[in-house]
Amino acid sequence: MTRLRLDDFLPYRLSIASNRVSNVVATTYQAMFGLRIPEWRLIAVLAESGGMTQQALGGRTRMDKVTVSRAAIALAERGLVERQPNPGDQRSHLLTLSVEGRRLYEQVAPKALEMEARMFAAFSSDELATLRAMLDRMEAAAEAVERQSRD
């Protein structure tokens, strides 16, 4: 029988690496901008995509409904996002960045890129391209397994 060893189990290792990177990012964003990771994710997605429903934000960020809702409420309370009626579905609202939210994004984005550069400075451009391609393949494989599990 094959024995499971966590240090060799790739899903575990990916989770640990992701948590470590997220913790570094979270500490920095909290100290500099008063943002938690879910809040930053919503800001970044809204900056790139424009108005979106909370459901669409959950799908895009892979965060659950409660996490998205809490982040959206916190951002709205700070005046960083605005809720507007959704012309395509009267039961939902579109969230968009406010002027202040856009301004904050313009401050955070360069810091995010700087942090990424620092974390991956020891990797060559070819290694980073390979890592990105592998992440794309892992996400696609996970999506395929999810689909099979639902069928």
Rank of each mutant, 00 (worst) to 15 (best):
residue 5 R to P: 00
residue 11 P to V: 01
residue 92 S to F: 13
residue 66 V to R: 13
residue 2 T to G: 12
residue 29 Y to C: 03
residue 106 E to C: 03
residue 88 G to H: 13
residue 46 L to M: 07
residue 136 D to W: 02
residue 51 G to D: 04
residue 32 M to V: 06
residue 81 V to N: 02
residue 45 V to F: 06
residue 18 S to A: 08
residue 115 M to P: 04
residue 40 W to A: 08
residue 101 G to R: 01
residue 90 Q to M: 12
residue 18 S to Y: 06
residue 42 L to F: 05
residue 69 S to Q: 13
residue 10 L to G: 02
residue 12 Y to E: 12
residue 67 T to E: 14
residue 151 D to G: 13
residue 141 A to Q: 04
residue 78 R to M: 09
residue 5 R to F: 11
residue 125 S to W: 14
residue 47 A to Y: 01
residue 14 L to N: 09
residue 11 P to E: 07
residue 57 L to G: 06
residue 20 R to P: 01
residue 11 P to D: 02
residue 91 R to D: 15
residue 145 V to A: 13
residue 71 A to E: 00
residue 65 K to A: 14
residue 146 E to A: 12
residue 112 A to P: 03
residue 149 S to T: 10
residue 84 Q to E: 14
residue 68 V to Y: 01
residue 107 Q to M: 10
residue 29 Y to E: 05
residue 3 R to W: 05
residue 74 A to I: 03
residue 83 R to H: 15
residue 23 N to M: 08
residue 13 R to I: 10
residue 128 L to Q: 06
residue 52 M to N: 12
residue 133 A to Q: 15
residue 44 A to C: 03
residue 41 R to K: 10
residue 49 S to G: 05
residue 93 H to V: 12
residue 55 Q to E: 14
residue 66 V to Q: 12
residue 56 A to W: 00
residue 89 D to T: 06
residue 135 L to H: 05
residue 124 S to E: 11
residue 50 G to R: 03
residue 83 R to W: 15
residue 62 R to W: 06
residue 129 A to Q: 15
residue 56 A to N: 09
residue 108 V to H: 01
residue 142 A to K: 07
residue 94 L to S: 08
residue 87 P to N: 13
residue 111 K to C: 07
residue 34 G to V: 06
residue 117 A to D: 11
residue 8 D to W: 05
residue 122 A to Q: 14
residue 9 F to H: 14
residue 67 T to F: 04
residue 98 S to V: 00
residue 93 H to K: 15
residue 79 G to I: 02
residue 74 A to Q: 05
residue 140 A to H: 03
residue 109 A to L: 11
residue 45 V to W: 03
residue 131 L to G: 01
residue 32 M to N: 09
residue 138 M to D: 09
residue 126 D to E: 15
residue 97 L to P: 05
residue 46 L to N: 04
residue 125 S to Y: 13
residue 96 T to P: 04
residue 63 M to E: 14
residue 40 W to S: 07
residue 23 N to G: 09
residue 59 G to C: 06
residue 8 D to T: 08
residue 55 Q to D: 14
residue 135 L to V: 13
residue 20 R to A: 11
residue 136 D to P: 01
residue 85 P to T: 04
residue 102 R to P: 00
residue 122 A to D: 15
residue 99 V to C: 08
residue 59 G to F: 10
residue 41 R to D: 12
residue 78 R to I: 03
residue 82 E to M: 12
residue 70 R to L: 09
residue 94 L to V: 10
